[in-house]
Design a protein around this nucleic acid. Structure first.
Length: 742
DNA sequence: AACCCCTGTCATCCG
DNA sequence: CCCGGATGACAGGGG
């Protein structure tokens, strides 16, 4: 009973504050004994020193008899809502009303249970409460600067509680005053002085009244929402995203921190990050990562942490609010998550992920894993988490490898629902890709068959085959060669590069192509005569275009649907059902005893023999000859068109080559011109050297007509005058110039 | 509805 | 002259 009162009045207050800050501190560790009382199951979470806590509370003169059981359960309900404030889907009125009602009486000793981080257990008074006060005084930027602050804050909660319990310290209201006075002071923009030094007395005395029953704020809220709001049925809950910050922004209550001020602390944060209140801990030089972790691990063993983390995730998925040391860690992770978001934004990373990370509570291990990966992705420093959460005894990897925090599986799907919805699709796509490629590799299936499979998988109609990207043209050429064939005229007609294959390397694997060569004809014949060939692609038997619409025949059907109905009505055999072209129908209608493939693909001698072997009427003979003519002409048209295309592409290539050649020639020309220019310049310089003065001593210039510059065998040039005699030339001051032979 | 592309078909030419 | 291929032209379907 005492605990209930304690919880209702004190701890919840702290949890509310931290939750409103986005800290999402779970007070369930404190409620664990009570849960055991209520649920009869401890869930193996035995962290709270219940008896010591009660003893400590008893010494504080609390009123254990003034307990409202209904209020407790209501409190439990609201408590869950508070924990989900970061993505609030809470009946705002009920929640806020509860916030109002839960503020009566002395504030939580939990706030006062915090002790100095330095571990000065003996410190009393305001000093004992400094830990939480520091945390609540933290700004968002500071939180970003030191992601451990949250952990340390939580840790300090636990540690200080223990200390306080052990020592029977009085978790007095001064701590609460520290806490809430800080809020008030920060709202007013005052420079905050950490109560750690025990020098700030003024704001220790200001805040409690504001959260008392008779404060203006409380009265205002009660007046607005009424006390009966909490009794509203769940069905009347209104889906709202209104957070307390929104409420404050709307109400403009001067008693509470200014949201704008809070946002101004970290304007680079997301909007909902602004909801992180200034209660986030400030950076404290005394906070030591290792020390904090040791403190945490002093509370729980690593294995327990892992197990309980898993426990936490499992129960969280069930919508429960299991708490305990795991919650402790998860909340810490949540805080670091926010910190990483801040980091990432500072680093210019995308805000989407940060947003996701920020608003998504750590429901499960997947979330944590995604957070881990996200942090890695954002920071590019996979050791950041390890730095923040170092594991003792060199087991730094134990967490990431064995625990639900393992991050190898979740990289981008932060939202489990989204992941679950996308997973089948992704799996299907990937498996399809893998399977097809594996088939191609292992089974030797050709690209054509792969494309067939893909088309079969992709197409619901089977009429939109596209072989332009595959070597299928070879086989198609055979199909078309055998058509207007019954089975695959559609495939042949749907290809732009079907029959005309000459020169195509892709064709060589399947034959020489449909044009001309006896090889192709033979193969086409074999293919067309092979009934099992199309069984490899049974879907091809049910698809096809009919392009023989313009044939003048009384029974001709210009539309596909009538053709299909025609086939269904008139054709009896299964082979007849395979008829897809008009000539097919005609042949079956005229009871031609051989297939169109024969008619078209057979050489003329064999064809004539075939006709001679069968006693056919004139109409049948005419039809057979027309079928053959049309079939061959169709192939010829296809080849012709393909040839046209090839010609066009060849011309384009020729044009491109010619342009390249032209450009190259122009460049060579420019180079030659440049070379000529250099040679001229060189020659000019050489002339200047050879003939330094335009006038010699005889006032005569060295003209080419008068002088020569013969090149000796030693690559020397000697200026000689035609006018001079040898003796004169020797006597004259001729210049000797060494010339380098280029 | 107009336009474009593809395809089948016919008529014609040519080797 | 016949045959088969080539090709221009036309028509229809489909996007």
């Amino acid at each position: 009973m005492c605990l209930k009162k304690y919880l209702a009045d004190d701890l919840i207050q702290v949890s509310i504050l931290l939750s409103l800050c986005g800290v999402r501190v779970d007070v369930d560790p404190y409620l664990l004994p009570l849960r055991e009382i209520i649920q009869g199951q401890s869930s193996g979470l035995t962290q709270t020193h219940f008896h010591d806590l009660r003893n400590s509370l008893g010494r504080q003169g609390l009123q254990p008899k003034s307990v409202d059981v209904d209020g407790f359960f209501m409190m439990r309900q609201f408590q869950g809502w508070v924990r989900s404030l970061d993505r609030l889907q809470v009946p705002a009125m009920q929640l806020e009303t509860w916030l109002v009602h839960s503020e009566h009486g002395p504030l939580a000793s939990a706030a006062g249970q915090t002790g100095p981080l330095s571990g000065a257990a003996g410190q009393e008074g305001s000093g004992d409460s400094s830990g939480l006060s520091i945390r609540m005084g933290e700004g968002v930027e500071d939180m970003m600067d030191d992601g451990l602050g949250a952990v340390s804050a939580l840790h300090v909660d636990q540690e200080d509680e223990d200390e306080l319990i052990k020592e029977g310290a009085h978790a007095d209201q001064r701590a609460e005053q520290d806490t809430f006075d800080y809020v008030t002071n920060q709202q007013s923009g005052e420079t905050l002085i950490s109560p750690l030094d025990g020098t700030n007395n003024e704001w220790e005395q200001n805040g409690v009244e504001r959260w008392s029953d008779d404060t203006p704020f409380m009265r205002h809220v009660i007046q607005v929402f009424g006390e009966d709001v909490c009794e509203l049925p769940i069905a009347d809950r209104v889906e709202t995203e209104l957070s307390l910050q929104d409420y404050l922004r709307l109400e403009g209550d001067p008693e509470l921190p200014d949201p704008e001020l809070m946002e101004s602390d970290a304007d680079h944060l997301l909007a909902h990050q602004s909801l992180l209140s200034p209660l986030i801990p400030l950076e404290d030089p005394s906070l030591d990562l290792e020390q904090n972790w040791q403190d945490i691990l002093a509370i729980m063993e690593p294995q327990e942490m892992e197990d309980e983390a898993y426990h936490y995730s499992a129960h969280s998925e069930e919508g429960m609010t299991l708490s305990g040391p795991t919650d402790f860690v998860n909340e810490a992770l949540s805080l670091h998550q926010a910190t990483f978001s801040s980091f990432s934004q500072e680093a210019g990373s995308t805000s989407d992920r940060s947003s996701t990370l920020e608003v998504t509570p750590p429901h499960s291990a997947e979330h944590l894993s995604s957070f881990y990966n996200s942090s890695q992705d954002l920071d590019g420093d996979p050791f950041e988490i390890a730095d923040l959460f170092p594991l003792p005894g060199g087991e730094d990897h134990a967490l990431s490898n064995n625990s639900p925090f393992h991050s190898s599986s979740y990289t981008f799907l932060d939202e489990p629902a989204l992941a679950s919805s996308l997973e089948p699709l992704l799996r299907e796509v990937i498996l399809r890709e893998i399977s097809l490629e594996d088939l191609a590799v292992q089974e030797g299936i050709s690209q054509f068959q792969i494309s067939q499979l893909e088309e079969h998988l992709d197409s619901d109609s089977g009429l939109s085959l596209n072989f332009s990207h595959s070597p299928a043209s070879s086989s198609q050429s055979c199909c078309s060669c055998s058509s207007a064939c019954s089975h695959c005229s559609s495939t042949a007609s749907s290809s732009s590069d079907t029959a005309y294959q000459s020169g195509s390397e892709e064709v060589m694997g399947f034959g020489e192509g449909a044009v001309g060569g006896s090889m192709s004809s033979k193969m086409c014949r074999e293919m067309s005569l092979e009934p099992g060939y199309y069984q490899q692609f049974p879907w091809l038997e049910h698809i096809g275009h009919d392009h023989t619409y313009n044939q003048p025949l009384s029974s001709s059907l210009s539309q596909k649907k009538p053709q299909k109905s025609f086939s269904k009505e008139l054709l009896r055999t299964e082979d007849q059902a395979k008829c897809t072209t008009r000539d097919e129908y005609r042949a079956h209608a005229m009871r031609i005893p051989f297939s169109n493939e024969h008619i078209i693909s057979l050489p003329v001698e064999e064809f004539n023999d075939l006709l001679s072997r069968h006693q056919l009427s004139d109409a049948q003979l005419t039809l057979v000859r027309d079928i053959r003519r049309r079939g061959k002409n169709k192939m010829a048209a296809q080849n012709c068109r393909q040839r046209k295309l090839d010609t066009l592409s060849g011309l384009e290539q020729s044009v491109a080559d010619l342009r390249l050649r032209r450009a190259r020639l122009i460049k060579e020309k420019a180079a030659f011109l440049h070379s000529v220019r250099e040679m001229k310049q060189c020659l000019s310089r050489l002339c200047q050297e050879v003939f330094p003065g335009p006038i010699n001593d005889q006032a005569r210039s060295y003209g080419t007509d008068d002088y020569a510059l013969p090149l000796t065998s030693e690559h020397h040039a000697m200026l000689s005058s035609h006018l001079m005699t040898n003796s004169e030339s020797k006597s004259k001051p001729c210049r000797k110039q060494k010339l380098k032979k280029k």
